[in-house]
């Protein structure tokens, strides 16, 4: 049976409730009239591990080959690591949430970004391990370039040179792209017409894709 509330308690309760109601209304009014309100974009809910699994399952066969080619490319200059290990690690990090997947980024670009940062992680780890015998391990890791990394990069650059050894136009376009030049600047520098430039890029992509499939230059 419900106990009858004393009149004083009922009065206090209703007063507290109306005070609370006024407070809520004041806050709402402040939010409605805040000049910042329109400037703050609504927060989209983050992608979940389930979203990653679903997107991975939805990758087309051609996108899988694209991913393989990117993984094989990113292995260049990483001794002791193959494309499968690199891709495996990237997928693991995407799934365990250690790398959040931004809403406006496609899955392939997201995985490619993880592979890119895994390269840096790999070299950082190598340097810390190599320097752990010295007293200044952490300091050394942030300082001068690592000779092993530079040597591996040199070998990787030589391998890319060999990949395009019989196509100097492709090599010139690649050089321009890596220097951040625009298509027009590359054309001006190489003397290629617009059609020649487009077909050179196409040849270059096909060579990279072939390499991505076979691993052979």
């Amino acid at each position: 049976m419900r106990a009858i509330q004393p009149a004083a308690d009922r009065k206090n309760f209703s007063r507290r409730r109306s005070a609370l109601g006024n407070g809520v209304r004041i806050v709402q009014r402040m939010q409605d009239t805040s000049p910042l309100k329109r400037l703050i974009p609504p927060q989209a809910p983050g992608r979940t591990e389930r979203d990653v699994r679903r997107a991975l399952a939805a990758l087309s066969e051609l996108d899988l080959l694209r991913l393989q080619a990117i993984a094989r490319l990113r292995c260049r200059g990483l001794p002791g690591l193959d494309w499968q290990e690199l891709l495996h690690e990237a997928v693991l990090r995407a799934l365990d949430g250690s790398r959040p997947w931004p809403r406006d980024v496609k899955l392939i670009a997201f995985l490619a970004g993880i592979m890119r940062s895994l390269r840096s992680d790999h070299w950082r780890r190598q340097r810390i391990m190599a320097a752990s015998l010295s007293a200044q391990a952490a300091e050394v890791a942030d300082q001068a370039p690592d000779p092993e990394r530079i040597a591996a990069a040199g070998q990787a650059l030589a391998a890319i040179d060999r990949l395009f050894a019989d196509d100097p136009a492709s090599l010139a376009v690649i050089l321009g792209l890596s220097q951040g030049l625009s298509a027009e600047e590359i054309r001006r520098r190489t003397g290629l017409s617009e059609t020649e430039y487009d077909s050179t890029r196409k040849r270059m992509r096909r060579a990279l894709l072939r390499h991505g499939l076979t691993g052979l230059p």
Partner: peptide, 9 residues
């Protein structure tokens, strides 16, 4: 590698 990856993507 960044430039070539953009081409592949």
């Amino acid at each position: 590698l960044d430039a070539l990856e953009a081409e592949l993507a």
